[in-house]
């Protein structure tokens, strides 16, 4: 009778994943300040930047500020990249979301460079964005982001950025803070090693 554990109820799985995502997103003050939150379907995230008057850069048009758009894209890229590795950690059982606290969350990737293309005027309304991790290695990751408003096929901005991933290889501040070691160093190196070879992320992660 007890030969094999029953699959968990869908609600339990959902709550666990949403809790981890919430911790990740709510932990970043700038995300809250910008009015950005995330919609999750499986492992896929869509970022949503709620329109607010303070995001305006040209009151005469009116249009969103280029800096607000850049911020939106960078927030989406960083959290998208971070979510991908956190997802792997959780789904593989290496990290238990119940044990995650703001203090033990994995460190966030650090931006090396970020290039934004402004394709169209950002209108005074809600914006959406999705990040695609094109490569995620032991130390470096390359992420592409697209943002749109009414029409997914007509992006108003896109960006490509390179990031230092926070594992052992990420260097910089690897040893900082006593409490955070647990879920991070070793686990991440291993998790990312798998997805490293070529750009097989898309196919492998679809399930």
């Amino acid at each position: 009778m007890t030969s094999r554990p029953r699959p968990e109820p869908v609600q339990v799985i959902k709550e666990r994943r949403d809790r981890a995502l919430d911790l990740l997103v709510q932990g970043v003050p700038y995300t809250r300040f910008m009015g950005i939150d995330f919609d999750r379907r499986g492992d896929e995230l869509t970022a949503l930047m709620h329109y607010d008057e303070k995001l305006i850069g040209n009151p005469f048009l009116p249009a969103l500020h280029g800096g607000a758009i850049a911020s939106f894209l960078e927030v989406t890229a960083i959290l998208g990249l971070s979510w991908q590795s956190l997802w792997d950690e959780i789904e593989s059982g290496r990290v238990a979301p119940e044990d995650l606290t703001p203090e033990t969350m994995p460190r966030l990737p650090k931006t090396i460079d970020f290039t934004v293309d402004y394709l169209r005027t950002g209108l005074p309304r809600d914006s959406y964005a999705r990040a695609r991790v094109n490569r995620s290695g032991r130390r470096y990751a390359s992420v592409h982001v697209e943002a749109w408003q009414d029409n997914r096929a007509r992006p108003f901005a896109q960006a490509t950025g390179h990031f230092l991933t926070p594992g052992q290889g990420g260097g910089q501040r690897a040893g900082q803070g006593a409490g955070q070691g647990a879920g991070q160093g070793a686990g991440q190196g291993a998790g990312q090693g798998a997805g490293q070879g070529a750009g097989q992320d898309g196919g492998a992660r679809g399930g």
Binding site: P29, Y30, A70, S71, E74, P102, M105, T111, R173, Q180
Partner: peptide, 19 residues
């Protein structure tokens, strides 16, 4: 405080520097 991108270090988010 509002512009912090890394809560563990208090460093400002890159997006704010971009802006």
């Amino acid at each position: 405080e509002d512009l912090v991108g890394d809560p563990q270090s208090g460093v400002i988010h890159g997006g704010a520097v971009s802006a």
